[in-house]
Amino acid sequence: MLEVLNVTKKYGKVVANDDISFSVNGGQIAILLGPNGAGKSTIIKCISGLLRFKGEIKLDGYDNKSIEAKRLLGYVPEVPAVYDLLTVEEHLEFIARAYRIKDDEYERSLLERFELWDKKSKLGKELSKGMQQKLSICCALVHKPEVIVFDEPLVGLDPHAIKVIKAIFQELKQDGRTILISTHMIDSVEDYWDVAHIMMDGKFAATKLNESVSGDDKESLEELFFRITEKKSEEA
């Protein structure tokens, strides 16, 4: 389970996240929606322990910067985190060694699902942007984390990979994992989220539960998103 309590992140005088609080339970998929610069990536990076912040973030009760919390976390960055001089297979070997785990079968199945197995001997720098993104996702999943945060995971992926990652979201959810996804592609997330937070100017402008859970079908997520974001930009 992921808990974010009163998190504020400033870059100099710019407030990127302003006193944000929310939680995501095991078996739940939460999404962060918002226009560019709303603060989605910042909160994802704070959760992943990559940024300093004010407030508290806990993973299964552990402080997010503790070793116990790191063991539970998987992070898919917005820009693929790939080493130029390691082969595809070596990336997974490195992560497995660093996290002290060994499951060759699982490594292979991940690569096969993302159509990377036949490219296992290619260097990171030889991969296209889309393939690097797929490898980055594999690296985040290979140690079987309990909490997985995805920062714009669908950007640059081909239709097959999008289908695979959507299936993986469902599998992880059924497996009881905690999933947080940041995205600005509303149409690509319509069918699998449980709770959506719409971000504007570093804050949550609205939170919506999926209609199948709440029975609320008055306004679609897309309508709500545009009502909030367009109203804000008109006011500005």
Binding site: L85, L86, T87, E89, E90, F94, A98, S121
Partner: peptide
Amino acid sequence: KVKVGKTGLSKGEGASAFYYK
């Protein structure tokens, strides 16, 4: 151009995986 040569880290666990990488 990079000559890939022998593949695999062969050693390293935890933090030492960085060294062998």
